[in-house]
Design a binder for these strands. Structure first.
Lengths: 320, 320
DNA sequence: GCTTGCGTTGAAACGCGTTTCATAAATTAT
DNA sequence: ATAATTTATGAAACGCGTTTCAACGCAAGC
C-alpha cells in the first residue's frame, strides 16, 4: 500500500508538502505541486481515511435516530440531514428504533464510545434525563422544543401550528373537530394534545376522547379512521391529520364511502408532502428538509444557534 | 484524554497487557487484569476507535445502496442487513439513490477512498461494467443473479418465482394475466418480464403491453391500476403485483369500486409483508430479511459462498 | 539435571496523515 | 540598506491501539 511518505520520496519532497498539496494549502511551489500530483497519479495513491480520523480525533460520522425509515416524514428529515452531511463530508449512521428505548440507548452508547461524533435524535423514547447523561460525550441534537433544557434542538412550535390549524377550521364553521396522530406519548404529540384541548375548551368546541385517533401513520390507516367516524354517533366534521399520507388515505376512503370532503368532513394534513399537492389536500407545511439541514449543522458545529424554531405555514387547498 | 499508556502506567503493566485485557485475550494473570480494570473504571477510559481502525486497516463501515428508504421492501432488506451488522460490530452508511446513477457512483467512490470497507448494492442503476471497475477497492455485493459475472450476490430466482405465480393463476383458470411493477429497467424486473412473456406465449395467454403496469411502488398506486383496468376493454382477470403494498391498495380500491376479489380480479402480491397477512392477500414470500443477512455476511467475509440463491414460497391466502 | 513447552509480560514497531516549529529564501516596507 | 514580512519547505512529534518478537519463569518430561 502506497502511503504519503512514498509519494514524498517519489516527488522528492517531504511528507508535509504532500499533505499540503493533498489538502490544497497555499505556500507550495508549482513545480513541487506538480511533482506530487504526478506521483499520486502514477501510484493511484488513496489516502488512508482512518489515519486522518485518528489525527483529527473525529470519525466524521453522525448518528441519526429515527423510529422508522419507511415513513415520508422521516424520509424528508433525512433528506435534509443527508444533504448537509454530503456537503460537509460526513457520513450518517442510521439507528432505527421502532420506538424501543433500548435501541436509542445503543445509539447513545455509540456516542459514548466515540464511534460517532454526534447524535441526532429525530424522535425520542427515552426521557430527557437519560439523554442528558450522554451530553459529555458529544453533541446531541433533538427535534423538539427543549426550552429551558441545555440540549440543542431544531423544532417547530407544534402548539402554535395546531392552534392555527384549529382556528382555520373554526373560522370555517367547525366546532366538532378531531385529530389523528401517530402516537400520543411523544413530546411533540403532547404539545399538540395540549393545544387541542386548550383550543376546544376556549372555543366551547366539542372535546371528546374518541375524536382523537391514534396509530395514524400510513395511508392505509386512513380507512380505519373513516370507518370509526361513520360508526360514531356524534362524529367530528373536521379532522387535523398529522400526516399527509393518512389524510390522503382518509380522503380516498371518504370518496369510496360517498362522504364528501370538505362538506361532510374537512381535512387538514401535515407536512405538505407531494401526495397532498397531488390530491389537493389543505395542509400545514413544516419544511422538514430545512429542519433536517439545521439539525445537522447543529450537530457538527457548536457555534450554530443552539435552539432554532422553524416556521410553519398553512397551505390552502381543497379539503377545508 | 486518557489513553492506553496512561492506563498501563496506573496499573503498573505494559500497554500490551492493557490491550490484551481490553480484548479479552488469555494469558493475563488475574492480578494484572484486575489492576487494569480498576484503572479503566477510575479514569472512565474509552478507547479511541479511530486508532483501532487505523491499525486494523478497516473502517468497520459498510455502505448500503438503496433507491428509497421509505419502501417496506427495502425496509426489510435493511432490517436483515442491520441485524448482522450489529452482531459483527459494523455500522451502516446508507446511500439513497432515487435511482440516480450519480449517487451510486458516489457510493462506489466512497469504497475507492476507503471510507467504507464494502458496498452492498440492493438495487442498481449503473451497468455492471462500471461496478466491476471498483471491485479492486473492496467487496461489492449485489442483490441480483450475477451468474457468470465475478461479483458476489444474494438473490432470488425471479424468473422461476414469476413463473410459479403465473402457473398458479393459470391453474385457477386465468389466461388474461397482467402484472404491476416498480420500474421495468432493473435487472430483476427484466427477468420478470422475460418470465411473463415466455409464460404467456407458451400458454397462449393474452399478452398485451397495457397489461403491464409500471410505477407501482406504494399503496396509493393501486388505485390508479384499478382505474386503468376498469377503463380497459379487454382487462386482465388476474394480476401479479410485485409489492404487497400495491396489492393492498388494489384490493381496497376494488372493494370500493364493487369489484370482487378474486372473482373479478385475482391478485398475487410479493414479499409477504405484514399488510398482506392482515388483508389476506395471496403472496410470494421472498424472505427479504434472510437475503439482507446474507448480503451482509458476503460483504465482510470473502469465505462465504459467493453466489447464494434464496428460495421463494407461495403463500396461499384469499385473493386467488 | 537438562530439555521442552506453556504461561505471562513488555519493548518496540506499525499503520499514516496532520500539524507545529524552525529555518531559509524571497519580497516588501521603511 | 536594513528590518520586517511573506513564501516555501522539511524534520519531528502526535494521535493511539494492536501485534509481533523476544525473553523470562516455572512446570512437566526424559
Amino acid at each position: 500500500m502506497t502511503n504519503i511518505r512514498k509519494i514524498a520520496e517519489m516527488a522528492q519532497v517531504s511528507p508535509s508538502t504532500v499533505s499540503r498539496v493533498l489538502n490544497g494549502y497555499a505556500y507550495v511551489s508549482k513545480e513541487k505541486e506538480e511533482a506530487v500530483w504526478k506521483a499520486i497519479n502514477e501510484t493511484k495513491y488513496r489516502k488512508n481515511i482512518n489515519a486522518v480520523h485518528l489525527r483529527k480525533g473525529k470519525t466524521f460520522l453522525i448518528g441519526v435516530v429515527i423510529p422508522f425509515t419507511n415513513h415520508p416524514y422521516f424520509g424528508q428529515l433525512i433528506e435534509g440531514i443527508s444533504e448537509m452531511a454530503i456537503e460537509h463530508h460526513y457520513n450518517l449512521v442510521l439507528f432505527q428504533t421502532n420506538y424501543h428505548e433500548k435501541k436509542e440507548i445503543e445509539a447513545l452508547n455509540m456516542l459514548k464510545h466515540k464511534q460517532i461524533d454526534a447524535l441526532l435524535i429525530c424522535s425520542r423514547t427515552s426521557p430527557l434525563k437519560t439523554i442528558k447523561e450522554y451530553l459529555d460525550y458529544g453533541q446531541i441534537v433533538l427535534c423538539e422544543d427543549t426550552k429551558e433544557e441545555s440540549i440543542s434542538s431544531t423544532f417547530v412550535d407544534h402548539y402554535q401550528a395546531f392552534t392555527m390549524a384549529l382556528s382555520y377550521l373554526h373560522k370555517n364553521g367547525h366546532t366538532k373537530i378531531g385529530y389523528c396522530i401517530g402516537r400520543r406519548s411523544g413530546a411533540n404529540s403532547q404539545k399538540r394534545e395540549r393545544a387541542y384541548k386548550d383550543f376546544m375548551q376556549r372555543k366551547n368546541g366539542i372535546l371528546r376522547e374518541d375524536h382523537i385517533f391514534e396509530d395514524c401513520l400510513y395511508f392505509e390507516d386512513g380507512e380505519h379512521v373513516v370507518k370509526q367516524i361513520m360508526e360514531m354517533e356524534d362524529s367530528p366534521t373536521a379532522l387535523l391529520v398529522t400526516s399527509d399520507q393518512v389524510a390522503a388515505g382518509i380522503l380516498v376512503s371518504c370518496e369510496n364511502k360517498q362522504l364528501s370532503v370538505p362538506d361532510d368532513l374537512a381535512l387538514i394534513g401535515f407536512d405538505n408532502q407531494p401526495i397532498s399537492k397531488m390530491m389537493k389536500i389543505t395542509t400545514i407545511e413544516m419544511n422538514l428538509i430545512k429542519i433536517g439541514r439545521n439539525l445537522f449543522l447543529q450537530a457538527i458545529d457548536g457555534q450554530v444557534e443552539m435552539k432554532k424554531e422553524i416556521a410553519v405555514q398553512l397551505i390552502r387547498r381543497g379539503t377545508v
